[in-house]
Design a protein around this nucleic acid. Structure first.
Length: 490
RNA sequence: GGCGCUAUCGUCUAGGGGACUAGGACGGGGCCCUCUCAAGGCCCAAACACGGGUUCGAAUCCCGUUAGCGCUACCA
């Protein structure tokens, strides 16, 4: 078996067309290219394939940049816009025309469509019959002079076109199955396969890593490389990403744009880690990895051939893991905008008690799977007044009189605690329970509702400490009033 | 239809001729911990698509079948 050529100084690129948002499949392709470049000390470039002017938008280009930036996939040289290279594409097509590896075709789209339709009923795949390739030179000249519109078609040579793929090993296509495809439209603009090869040559790309939906484009592109006298890059065709139903991932499957995940409170590191494991494995049981670890571990032999299914449940779990392993100082800037946006606190206010704030985040992140979960839990530590979750009330304040009674005892106990530190608080509350002859939980749960309004929270003493004496005491007092409205009338 | 790619628990995967009674993770179920919920720990159910070869021996190599997916444009 032949080994695929591995370039000394790899140059890779991610080449999305700006016709929508950055799709998770595209992001995964970008990630693998980036990882390969970073692992091998190569270059990772970005090219915007905007030659389809009807579908390309600046907004999409911006979305791609934003997605890449959010993920932290930085590129090494100036962004290349394919649309700026039209002249070179045309020149390359003309070069092939002059060299005889391509020819002019005067057949109109309508004629072609008609012939295609006719052959659809037969058992043969439609292939251009090369009738224009058989035109006598004088006639071609005459029609060119007359100004008849023509496209440039690539003439598929005899033989077999094959390559050693980085993920699939050897792939071969008998040339007889290839069609004399168009490389230049009648309006002089290039077709995809020409533009890609022309640009990849110009950019010095020597490792082409892309989705395996491009496998059937590859023999055509190889033929163009040869016709242009250029050296072949190493190809790597990555498996697709499908939705839970096994079909190609699309909007029906929910969020498919990386921006959607950013807004759902995902961490880019989790997204990257999750995406990396779709179609690649470092081997063994390794799963949770930082970006740096992935760079170190990334080699093409871990690449999978089979399409992977995108499982949002595992992504969420992955995010929970990253929420825990991310250093607080890195986590804080990702959470703070959400805290501010939720109206819980101003950024400046958080900065003045940063230490307390980081401790709070540390407390909350354990039981959060998204940044939004953290924000949801954070409310009680900032808000002046809280709402009581009906479920919490029904469960832990079932008997309002009894609950109020307990909380009064708690309030008194807490007020008389001079130090407000965990051990003392716990001892005091537990002895209160003992004196009342009830289980400690019978005190903790109602108190939890008073403090947070919820049935779930961090450990009750951690809550007390994080909330601080003043707020906590106010919370308990508020709860007693809420439970016993009669009281204020007297 | 033609051509191509693929095939291990529901999902992501490890494994690459004997180490396989097929390992890990998500999800599911149970237990432990415990003031709640998470986290964590322990346990359970769950897979080599099928059929032929090759071999002393196949999840692993070869062929075929089946199924899924992709491509089959003057789209990218």
């Amino acid at each position: 078996m032949t080994e695929p050529p591995i370039p000394e100084a790899p140059r890779l690129r991610f080449a999305p067309s700006p016709t929508g948002y950055l799709h998770v499949g595209g992001a995964r392709t970008a990630l693998f290219n980036w990882l390969y470049a970073r692992h091998n000390d190569g270059k990772f470039l970005l090219r915007i394939e905007d030659t389809d002017k009807a579908r390309s938008t600046d907004e999409s280009t911006r979305a791609i940049f934003e997605g890449m930036e959010w993920l932290g996939l930085d590129w090494d040289e100036e962004v290349v816009y394919q649309g700026a290279n039209l002249e070179r594409h045309r020149a390359d097509a003309l070069r092939m025309l002059e060299a005889g590896s391509a020819y002019r075709c005067f057949c109109t789209p309508e004629e072609l469509e008609e012939r295609r339709r006719a052959s659809a009923f037969g058992k043969e795949a439609f292939k251009y019959d090369r009738r224009c390739d058989r035109l006598p030179p004088e006639q071609i000249q005459e029609r060119v002079d007359r100004g008849d519109p023509f496209v440039v078609r690539f003439r598929i040579p005899e033989g077999t076109t094959e390559w050693v793929d980085l993920v699939h090993e050897r792939i071969a296509f008998p040339n007889k199955d290839l069609d004399d495809f168009v490389i230049l439209r009648s309006n002089g603009t290039p077709i995809y396969n020409l533009a890609v090869v022309s640009d990849d040559i110009a950019m010095g790309i020597n490792v082409v890593m892309r989705g395996d939906d491009h496998i059937s484009n590859t023999p055509k592109q190889i033929l163009i490389y040869r016709a242009l006298g250029a050296e072949l890059p190493t190809f790597a065709h990555l498996p697709m990403i499908h939705g839970m139903d096994g079909k190609k991932l699309s909007k029906r499957h929910g969020a498919t744009a990386v921006g959607d995940y950013e807004h759902q409170g995902l961490l880019p590191s989790a997204m990257l880690n999750f995406l990396a494991l779709l179609g690649w494995s470092p081997g063994g049981d390794r799963e949770i990895m930082t970006m740096q670890e992935m760079i170190e571990l990334f080699t093409p032999d871990g690449l999978q051939k089979k399409a992977a299914i995108f499982d949002p449940k595992k992504l969420e779990w992955m995010n929970g893991q990253h929420l825990s392993i991310t250093p607080l100082s890195e986590l804080e800037p990702r959470v703070t905008p959400a805290i501010v946006a939720a109206g819980l606190a101003a950024e400046a206010a958080l900065a003045t008690r940063r230490e307390w704030y980081l401790e709070l985040l540390d407390l909350l992140r354990v039981r959060a799977r998204t940044i939004d979960d953290i924000v949801r839990q954070a409310g009680p530590y900032f808000l002046d007044r809280i709402e009581y979750d009906p479920e919490a009330v029904a469960k832990n304040w079932k008997d309002p009189v009894e609950a109020a009674e307990i909380l009064k005892g708690v309030l008194e106990t807490l007020r008389s605690d001079p130090n407000w530190e965990p051990a003392g608080l716990e001892a005091a509350l537990r002895s209160l329970a003992e004196s009342k002859g009830i289980a400690a939980g019978k005190i903790f749960q109602p108190l939890r509702v008073a403090l947070t309004g919820l049935t779930v929270s961090p450990g009750i003493f951690e809550v007390l400490i994080a909330m601080g004496r003043d707020l906590a005491l106010k919370r308990v007092a508020d709860a007693i009033i809420w439970l016993d409205p009669e009281k204020i009338r007297h």
